[in-house]
Design a protein around this nucleic acid. Structure first.
Lengths: 169, 169
DNA sequence: GTTGATGTTCATTTTTATTTGAACAATCCG
DNA sequence: CGGATTGTTCAAATAAAAATGAACATCAAC
């Protein structure tokens, strides 16, 4: 109906749109859904904290997406509730965590460690099956491969904390 | 028609099935398609190199999937052509690369670096837009955020080689 | 307790990614 | 050549993932 101050078609100024797209690409590399990138991106480029409804309106996504996206971002430690809405406001506002250390830490904790751990126990079971093999040659081969897998997992376990430390600067 | 030595329903022995599933899970974490995990997994647990047709038959996947999957695995440096089919054989056989260093190196080179680099140039352009902002307060905010992004990218660039070195043991 | 505002859940729809398969090379050999 | 074998490509089909939206909670203020 009328020209908004700095945007109109989708509620985002050109720079905001570019930043949001940047994060959309970014989270796809990490295997996270598009909406996660949109939400985090908009929070990242916003000077003041935003509420769920702001995200819905400015990004043009559904309430469901916004709610689930915020939940995941919270679990990753990538957004926090903004302090200071103690009096009249019931609505909660969110702001992004911008420290790389924190983001990487959350991602490792939520997305990598669980897989690493379930992987380790699966390999343990596989190694047992391998030791039960009859043919000695085949058994030797299987044990060697299982040992290789265990080696990979150990490397992974060793590297993660170092990675976190290196990124915390 | 008849009972195969160690398998029949899907061409995979139980242990093989488990290993293949393990890799299917593994590659999903990395954002790669299922067939990649199936192919690499079967090669990993096979004592002798396999040809495209072996993969098709034992995994029950299409020739197209096998061909594309092998192409990607080759580009990642995760499989190599087995030497020693110089005389009668035209068919090429594949074996897995099992050194973690090599696998991680290929993944970084093919999947991470390109994104990191395109990300860096996008940020560069964003930072320019930010410097063109009129309102000084807003400009200061945007420049700070863009500086943060550049910081992330620099950290990423610094950490990758270290990561490769740490995993090469 | 009623109303209104905020947020969540989850079955369904939509979108995106992957697989298929048939047509098309390429290569070898008689 | 001509036919058999091996492998690739890519439009269409299928499967998997994500988004939607309406019904359902929660809570605060009156």
């Amino acid at each position: 109906m009328d020209a908004a101050p700095d945007s109109s078609i989708d509620g985002l100024a050109p720079l905001e749109r570019q930043v949001v797209d940047f994060f959309v690409d970014g989270v796809r590399v990490l295997g996270l859904p598009r909406s996660i990138g949109e939400i985090y991106g908009l929070l990242f480029i916003s000077r003041s904290p935003l509420a769920l409804d702001d995200l819905v309106q400015r990004l043009g996504i559904s309430k469901g997406s916004a709610s689930q996206g915020l939940r995941m971002l919270k679990s990753l430690g990538a957004v926090r509730e903004a302090s200071g809405n103690g009096n009249g406001e019931r609505r909660t506002y969110y702001e992004p965590a911008v420290e790389l250390k924190r983001l990487v830490g959350g991602f490792i904790r939520e997305q990598i460690r669980p897989h690493l751990e379930s992987g380790q126990s699966k390999i343990h079971r596989l190694a047992e099956s391998a030791r039960a093999e009859d043919d000695p040659e085949q058994r030797k081969f299987l044990e060697e491969r299982m040992e290789r897998l265990e080696q990979w997992m150990r490397s992974g376990g060793r590297v993660l904390p170092i990675l976190q430390k290196l990124l915390g600067q």
